[in-house]
């Protein structure tokens, strides 16, 4: 029983970290229609910045600062903001598939930088000894993980609450107007490029926060953690949960990650040992199949965007 609780705490922490990244992507795609195919770039920037700021000095690495955890989190968000601003200014003119290609290229670039800038990131050997906040105050692993879950949950609630306010504000309505019909929004005097850039940067900051939480939760990052598959997973979470709906983004993270790990448990429980080596392929098929079924029957996601009707109508 205690083991199940311990696993669930761990599982939910991962879900919420993905959920935060998913909320960031939802602001970009779900509300503004900015096609960011380089989610993992900002996730990686957040994770590495956090690692560099908080890890204790190491003779092999040039910049380990050993600063407190909150500084690491804020620094990670600032670095993601800066990166998104540079990328955004260069690419915000691009739309749809063009932007997707550009951001995908940036994700690959960031991954290669983490692999090659060895004196800063540890390169292919990875970055070890990332401290966990207040780890000294807990004697058990479980009690610590519960504390960390609380921390991540607090961050999730904060991000969710802020986003809910933001997207319901006049600013959020402009984002949706741009998503629906950019020409019409521009005709109303809105600077679509500026709004798209703002949404892109803000979303990336949130994704960077998720990256920082990932680094301090696992205690180790390597370029191997930031392959394009992660972008794909976070996109899947958003599409399954319902893009344009923040609750959908969080639900999607829970469902998709639950499916990913639950199907592994199922395969190892159900199949006899002699078929288990082939069973993993069945797991991949199962994941794919369920995603397809979900999209066929719920094309707008499990909780799609709420229809917005003016309260003056009817």
């Amino acid at each position: 029983m205690i083991g199940i609780v311990s696993y669930l705490v761990f599982f939910l922490t991962v879900v919420l970290i993905f959920g935060i990244a998913c909320l960031g992507l939802n602001l970009q795609w779900g509300f503004t229609g900015v096609f960011n195919a380089g989610v993992v770039a900002f996730y990686a920037i957040g994770a590495y910045t956090h690692a560099i700021i908080t890890a204790p000095p190491n003779p092999l690495l040039i910049a380990n600062l050993g600063l407190p955890w909150p500084v690491g989190v804020l620094g990670a968000m600032a670095a993601a903001a800066l990166a998104a601003l540079i990328v955004g200014i260069a690419t915000v003119r691009l739309r749809g598939d063009y932007l997707a290609i550009a951001t995908f290229g940036i994700a690959v670039t960031v991954q290669l930088i983490t692999l090659n800038w060895q004196s800063l990131t540890g390169g292919s050997l990875g970055f070890t000894s990332i401290p966990r906040p207040l780890a000294g105050y807990f004697d058990g692993q479980l009690s610590y993980n519960i504390f960390f879950l609380g921390l991540v949950a607090a961050a999730t609630v904060l991000v969710y609450w802020a986003l809910e306010r933001v997207v319901r504000s006049p600013w959020g309505r402009v984002l949706r107007a741009i998503r629906e019909d950019e020409t019409a929004a521009v005709a109303l005097g809105k600077d679509a490029r500026l709004f798209r850039l703002q949404a892109f940067v803000l979303g990336s900051v949130i994704i960077g926060l998720a990256g920082a939480l990932h680094a301090s939760f696992i205690g180790f990052v390597s370029p191997f953690d930031f392959l394009p598959i992660l972008t794909f997973q976070i996109w899947t979470m958003l599409i399954v949960g319902g893009s344009g709906n923040n609750r959908g983004a969080l639900l999607g993270a829970l469902i998709v990650w639950g499916l990913w790990s639950g199907s592994g448990v199922l395969v190892s429980k159900v199949l006899p040992p002699e078929f288990q080596t082939q069973g993993a392929a069945a797991q991949s098929i199962l994941i794919g199949l369920l995603l397809v079924v979900m999209l066929v029957f719920k094309p707008r996601g499990l909780i799609g965007e709420e229809p917005v009707v003016s309260r003056h109508v009817g």
Partner: peptide, 26 residues
């Protein structure tokens, strides 16, 4: 009893499977 799990070559998947094996399967 040998409990085999697939990591799909992905760190997050491997970590999740390991946590499950250690905590739930003991």
């Amino acid at each position: 009893e040998f409990l085999l799990r697939d990591d799909q070559g992905q760190p997050t998947v491997g970590v999740d499977a390991a946590k499950f094996l250690v905590e739930v399967e003991r």
